[in-house]
Amino acid sequence: MIPLEQYGEFETAWCPGCGNHAILKAVKKALSTLDLPPHKVLFASGIGQAAKAPHYLRCNAFNGLHGRSLPPAQGAALANTELTVFAESGDGCSYGEGGNHFLAALRRNVTMTYLVHDNQIYGLTKGQASPTTAQGQKTKFQPDGAPSMPFNPLAVAVSMNAPFVARAFAGEIDHLADIIAQAARHPGFALVDILQPCVSFNKVNTYAWYRERCYKLGADHNPTDWEAAMRKAQEFGDRIPIGVIYKGDRAPFETRINPAVLRPLATSRPDLARLGGLLQGYA
């Protein structure tokens, strides 16, 4: 195990009491358990409060644009399969602005881990409804209640047989750290949707609100049973399951493409003799 101090200690721009602090702790714990030194890890993120997380961790970081944590993460993961790649961002960034990339990533199934800080609100822009805000929940910007039905990332991921689909809660750090570690070990695309209280802008989904409802999935849930997983993925109300919802063995993207193109691209050089041969085909 790598000592936690290796991952650094930084001053953050997050509100005191925000669920992000706990998620950051769990991430460090998971990396330490995985024995991953900072330079072997890449965190790609988008924009939002959650997306700042990689700045508070010693690691390689690509803090890109709002909604775009996934495309660079996949590009980098393919350019160098020896990096352990995470993408980390908020619910708005991941399921709203980046929704199409989420769908494509589920299909593509590149080996990487997607950590979504799901506070069911837009934090950085001060409290608008997000894709996971409950229908009817009032915000300053939706005074009559959010009109649209919330997006269900878990059900979508399970429906696509994403190889690893989990839900966790920022209030259960050890449980979360364990799930992150499992996700990172799993080949293919792993989704961890993390319930994260936003103390400043979401007065509904508070720590207490989640604590009352969250329960850990036990031995009675078989995550390899797709139908059971689909049922668990639908459960979000009086009771919210946390844990590994679904686990499958869909072949990752890397195993489905020409193996010759998978090598660290940074060290590959063009074979000009070969190129000359290809050009002969045009003569």
């Binding site: 775009r68 495309p71 980098a76 393919l78 350019a79 494509a104 090598r263 691209l265």
Partner: peptide, 24 residues
């Protein structure tokens, strides 16, 4: 040995390329 991916849209295409470029 070129790695080629048809992205979901042009936004993904360029952002994916930037991630790959970052990684070398």
């Amino acid at each position: 040995g070129m790695l080629i991916e048809q992205a979901e849209d042009e936004i993904a295409a360029i952002n994916m390329a930037l991630g790959a470029s970052y990684a070398g």
